Amino acid sequence: MNTAHFNSLSVDELWILHQEVAAKLAQKMAVQKAQLEERLHRIELANEATRLNRKRRRPYPPVRPKYRNPKNPAETWSGRGRQPRWLRPQLRSGRDLDDFLIDQA
């Protein structure tokens, strides 16, 4: 941009130019702000719709214990997930998992 002609302008002409530029900038910023706010509103609506449309995980019934610690009958295990601490050493010592089954009678 050639700025040499600014040197030939008077203070009043520069001030008028400044006001015109500031007004034009404010106008463009207002338009851009409105566009960004509309875009943000659409994104928020899409996020809300996604959140509402997410499938909820079905509730699973509680699983009954299948195995019991013979040394402490209060310690049980359903057979799901990680093996409990009381069971691991028993299995390493050669015992079978069926040795810990709870009678289903």
Rank of each mutant, 00 (worst) to 15 (best):
N7M: 08
Q35R: 14
E13W: 00
W77E: 02
R39C: 04
Q104F: 03
A46F: 03
A46Q: 13
D96K: 15
Q27T: 11
L40D: 12
P62A: 13
G79Q: 06
N2Y: 06
P59A: 06
L45P: 01
L91V: 05
L87S: 05
L101E: 12
L14Q: 01
D98Q: 14
K55W: 05
T3M: 05
G79V: 12
L101H: 10
E75L: 13
P65V: 06
L14V: 00
A34F: 05
I16T: 15
W86Q: 03
F100G: 02
L14G: 00
A26W: 04
N69I: 04
P65E: 02
A46T: 06
S10N: 01
R56K: 14
L101Y: 09
G94M: 05
R56H: 06
V63I: 15
S8E: 12
V21I: 15
W15C: 10
D99M: 07
P65C: 05
L25G: 04
L25S: 12
K71L: 13
K66T: 15
H18N: 11
A26F: 08
K66A: 13
A34S: 12
R80D: 07
N69C: 09
L25T: 14
A74P: 00
P65K: 02
L91M: 09
S8L: 08
S78G: 15
F100H: 03
L91R: 07
E44M: 13
L36T: 07
R39K: 14
E20I: 06
S78W: 04
F100E: 01
V31I: 10
S8I: 02
E38T: 01
G94C: 04
I43T: 02
R68A: 15
L9F: 03
Q90M: 14
E13Y: 00
R95Q: 14
D98V: 12
R56E: 11
L17T: 04
W86Y: 07
L9C: 04
Q19S: 09
R56S: 11
G79N: 07
Y67F: 15
N69L: 03
K55P: 02
R95D: 08
Q27P: 00
Q32I: 00
L91H: 06
W86H: 04
A34H: 08
K71F: 09
L9W: 04
D98E: 15
R51M: 09
A23E: 15
S10P: 00
D98T: 15
K66R: 15
V31H: 06
R51I: 08
D12V: 02
S8Y: 02
R42N: 09
